[in-house]
């Protein structure tokens, strides 16, 4: 009787050991799946000493990432992420994307964007957008509300800014069922330089909003203002 028991024990041990690798890989997979990916956070000192400019970007509910300024040319800033996605901005306005599910290919009439000019509550802007999913020339009309007093809280301090709310209307009759042909973008602008320091922009109907914070410019602004910020402030 001892021999069958021994064989059974040996066989069971063999089976268990054979499954151990698979079992462990399942455990690892669930650990990875259930561990939340944290927002990228850079300290004041990190940003201050960085070789490149950085902008925080959050796309919808996804974790916040930091994108580096790859190039500044033709009044455009070209921001690249670690996964080689690209956002192109003109004074904070996202005018082109590469790497999203539906990329913004082209935006017309960009020179007339009130964000680049003397912005007031009567400002309006009309442009057309081309999308990589095969939609071309979609008309968007914007009106702006300017709120002079607002603050951005970051690096354990605050910075006075002008808040601008842009109401965007997607003028084209929808080809699909859409419930959000009107939405709002928000820009927080440095009153002194006119630069957009923070924004919440929805590029098109049904798309998740993109939140951006130009942390390198904020660090420069705080230093110019003589604000003392702890090196490890986030």
């Amino acid at each position: 009787m001892a021999l069958p028991k021994l064989c059974l024990a040996f066989f069971a041990t063999f089976l268990m050991s054979s499954c151990a690798g698979t079992y462990n890989s399942y455990v690892d997979m669930f650990k990875v799946a259930l561990t939340p990916i944290e927002d990228v956070t850079l300290t004041f000192s990190d940003v201050e000493q960085a070789e490149f400019d950085y902008v925080y970007v959050r796309y919808g509910e996804k974790p916040r990432i930091a994108m580096a300024l790859m190039l500044a040319e033709k009044n455009q800033y070209k921001w690249v992420s670690a996964d080689q996605s690209l956002l192109i901005t003109e004074n904070g306005r996202i005018v082109k994307t590469l790497g999203l599910a539906n990329d913004l290919l082209y935006l017309t009439n960009r020179d007339a964007d009130p964000l680049k000019q003397q912005l007031n509550t009567n400002s309006t802007w009309v442009r057309q957008a081309d999308w990589s999913v095969g939609e071309y020339g979609y008309l968007m009309r914007s009106s702006f509300d300017v709120y002079l007093e607002d603050t951005i809280n970051i690096f354990s301090t605050s910075l006075s800014v002008t808040k601008v709310i842009e109401t965007v209307t997607y003028e084209q009759k929808s080809n699909y069922l859409r419930f959000d042909s009107t939405w709002q973008n928000v820009f927080w602008i440095d009153a002194l330089t006119g630069r957009v320091l923070k924004s919440q922009q929805q590029l098109g109907p049904g798309m998740e909003p993109l939140e951006s914070v130009y942390i390198s410019e904020i660090v420069r602004r705080l230093k110019q203002n003589g604000v003392v910020v702890a090196k490890d402030a986030i």
């Binding site: 080689q84 690209l86 590469l98």
Partner: peptide, 9 residues
Amino acid sequence: IDYDLARTV
């Protein structure tokens, strides 16, 4: 062909 894409990817 995209100049920005070519320089990124």
